[in-house]
């Protein structure tokens, strides 16, 4: 058949090819390899074995890392929301030079995670860190070192992922018509009640999207916890990397990566269901 859409149909090969080459094939390989066997001292041999999954769920070491990863991801998302929401609300409602502030927020993304993480190791160290400032202010008696440590990991993760939260919330909060707030005022609700009853519910999509985005990013965080954390503050991503590169156990790494992905997708699905949001809407915050 020589349909008129013939030429157009070939255009679809591009996005389809992209999807297959960059997403479906690697994911399929990951699934297949996760069932392979890893001989001691070797690389991997094709097999269909559940040994990698059994190993993961039978050792508390891995389960603890998974639990820690989920916990720190939830915590980072919550902290980013608590810090980012008031800032973004101020930005969309009151600030005069919105574009300037947004560029300021985005500019932190111009540097790589690695450089920014090392910057925090200096800032949180005993010798040159901010604890010296606290001593000078009289808040501390002696300068302290916070890195490596849990606090450093949390600070680093929040710092790195906060811009994503702000940019997501910005779209959502900015798209709320100011007349909704004015209507609420005209009906006798003061600023606090208006915020609580109108602005907060109307920005729900942005809150959910931003939180999920930060959650997903933290679930896969590798650089920040490895630079700023002690081994027992490492995320599952670091363990996966270790298995794949240092232990040459790619099948086990693949299995862990899949488990992490399934848990992440499960939590996203659960959160979306609970909040009644239809899906991720990054950027605009519109339904």
């Amino acid at each position: 058949m020589k349909g008129r859409g013939g030429g157009l149909r070939y255009l679809l090969i591009y996005p389809l090819g992209m999807l297959i080459i960059f997403f479906l094939i690697p994911l399929g390989m990951l699934v297949v390899i996760s069932f392979y066997h890893h001989p001691p001292g070797g690389f991997y041999v094709p097999a269909f074995s559940l040994e990698n999954y059994v190993r993961f769920f039978s050792k508390s070491l891995y389960l603890l890392r998974l639990a820690f990863t989920v916990e720190i991801s939830l915590l980072t998302a919550a902290l980013c929301l608590i810090l980012g929401y008031p800032f973004t609300f101020y930005l969309t409602r009151m600030a005069k030079r919105k574009r300037f502030y947004i560029i300021l927020v985005i500019s932190t993304l111009w540097l790589s995670y690695i450089i920014r993480s090392y910057a925090w190791t200096v800032l949180l160290s005993r010798n040159a860190g901010i604890s010296n400032l606290f001593v000078w202010l009289g808040l501390l008696k002696h300068p302290a070192s916070y890195t490596p440590g849990l606090l450093a990991v949390i600070i680093g993760l929040v710092y790195v992922f906060l811009p994503f939260m702000i940019l997501t919330l910005y779209g959502s909060l900015k798209s709320i018509n100011a007349e909704y707030e004015e209507a609420s005022f005209s009906l006798g609700a003061g600023p606090f009640k208006t915020f609580w009853n109108i602005v907060l519910p109307l920005s729900k999509d942005g809150i959910v999207s931003g939180s999920l985005l930060v959650f997903i990013l933290t679930m896969g965080a590798y650089v920040v916890p490895s630079i700023l954390g002690k081994p027992h503050q490492w995320t599952l991503a670091i363990i996966i990397g270790d298995q794949a590169t240092y232990e040459s156990n790619v099948p086990f790494g693949a299995a862990m990566a899949l488990i992490l992905m399934i848990i992440a997708v499960g939590i996203i699905w659960l959160m979306s269901r609970l909040s009644g949001t239809k899906g991720l809407s990054v950027g605009t915050g519109k339904k």
Partner: peptide
């Protein structure tokens, strides 16, 4: 007050 966009709360 009735606004130009009516501003009926969508939620």
């Amino acid at each position: 007050m009735v606004f130009q966009s009516l501003a009926l709360f969508p939620h």
